[in-house]
């Protein structure tokens, strides 16, 4: 039984230790923000932080994560307040949103390591595939996130979830119980 810390909580997985982290997160822990796009490391949609480093969770097994600290998109911030999240929403560098969580995690790792990345450094740090075509907005969005991180500007683009009286979150109509 692999034991690791996910989003600041200790978790033990009763799953085959060879299971890639991606499936443990999605199917074992119901953390579905991390997306499956290819399973072989090509698309970057499943990127999470493992001990602070951005890793493609399809390429690392549960056994390899034993004792490590994993942060997924759900744990990056409680209320979408991470500078990368705020900046991507402010710049509307999101369309269908499927590649977004992986992009956010890569960009978050970049900013932790480099508070003021150059255009070339941003391009090198974000190999994520996006078919909707948000690429033309990404460099500016990440640079904006960096300047927010450096406290040079503040934005308040993505309201917190839970209907705080500002923009109500998109609602979906599910019948049945969804955890």
């Amino acid at each position: 039984m692999a034991r690791l810390t996910i989003n600041a909580r200790p978790v033990a997985f009763d799953m085959d230790p060879r299971t890639p982290l991606l499936w443990a997160l999605r199917d074992g822990a119901n953390l579905t923000g991390t997306k499956y796009g290819c399973g072989v490391g090509d698309c970057g949609a499943c990127t999470v932080l493992v001990d602070g480093a951005a890793l493609r969770s399809c390429l690392v097994t549960l056994a390899e994560c034993e004792g490590r600290v994993v942060v997924t998109i759900e744990g990056l911030s409680r209320d979408r307040s991470h500078p990368v999240q705020q900046a991507l929403v402010a710049e509307q560098a999101i369309q269908c949103g499927f590649c977004t969580p992986g992009l956010v995690m890569n960009a978050a790792a970049l900013l932790t390591a480099n508070a003021n990345p150059s255009e070339a450094e941003i391009k090198a740090a974000l190999p994520n595939l996006c078919r909707c075509g948000v690429q033309p907005r990404l460099v500016r969005a990440i640079q904006r996130a960096a300047s927010i991180s450096r406290r040079e500007e503040t934005i308040d683009a993505a309201p917190p979830p839970g209907g705080s009286g500002r923009i109500p979150a998109m609602t979906t109509t599910f019948q049945g119980d969804t955890p």
């Binding site: 579905t32 923000g33 979408r80 509307q92 309201p159």
Partner: peptide, 25 residues
């Protein structure tokens, strides 16, 4: 932006539900 997209906040934190994100008992 005068009318920011309504779907982006839930897309930036992974809570927007795609078909493979549905979880049922």
């Amino acid at each position: 932006l005068a009318y920011p997209r309504l779907d982006l906040p839930s897309k930036v934190d992974g809570s927007f539900v795609f078909a493979a994100d549905v979880r049922l008992p």
